[in-house]
Amino acid sequence: MNLTSIKTIYLFEMDRTRRTLTQSIASPVLSTALYFVVFGSAIGSRIDNIDGVSYGAFIVPGLIMLSVLQQSISNASFGIYFPKFTGTIYELLSAPISYVEIVIGFVGAAATKSLILGLLILLTAFCFVDLQIQSPFLMLLFLVLTATTFSLFGFIIGIWADGFEKLQIIPLLVVTPLAFLGGSFYSIKMLPPFWQKVSMLNPVVYLISGFRWSFFGEGDVSLGVSLVMVAVFLAVCLFVVRWIFKSGYKLKP
């Protein structure tokens, strides 16, 4: 394992975040704070408690997940798409490094950024709602797993995309609807039975449910199922990334 190369890619990517601090951190934190104000304080006070949790506190895990999902994908996809777009990818392809090292560097940086963002949103949440975390360790585990998995997913999108439009299309048309319908703002149990079943096909449901479990000890599905689903999605992403580098798909002409 070439640690110097991994560190170089990781720090280079992290440096990009420092340069684009407003876009990378400040704007997602601000938009989530607005959600807390509107849904948590203004509208939330008129909504009943869900499973004994106030609505303001109930949406915190969902909102964090929503941002972490979106930012992981956007950070990682842009991180690898940009060198492809500018042509500087030649350097990565000609360097004495394996694809595993490239992936650790890029995905590691993207996941770190999302993790920082998730924690910042959590801190913001404490300013608006009364919140207690039942299993902080589990909460962190879910955050790390989700950030890593979706950064890998973003990395795949970044390699697949051959234009800025394609870069946006999956996050906008697939991930955002899945995240909104995955129980960010409501409990799946509130839906009619048919839609509850349909919702079970949405992988984001398991992420949000597991994450919510770590906060309140309650979720839409059991904790074990949530963990297994995250692990399955992580494995699928790892498999696809491995295939991309082995076949040179969209990387090597």
Partner: peptide
């Protein structure tokens, strides 16, 4: 092919690092 926003020094340092 260059990273427009990087400094000359950063981009050259990156090359050395990426080669381990």
């Amino acid at each position: 092919t260059t990273n427009a926003f990087e400094s000359v020094n950063a981009t050259v340092k990156f090359s050395r690092g990426v080669f381990g």
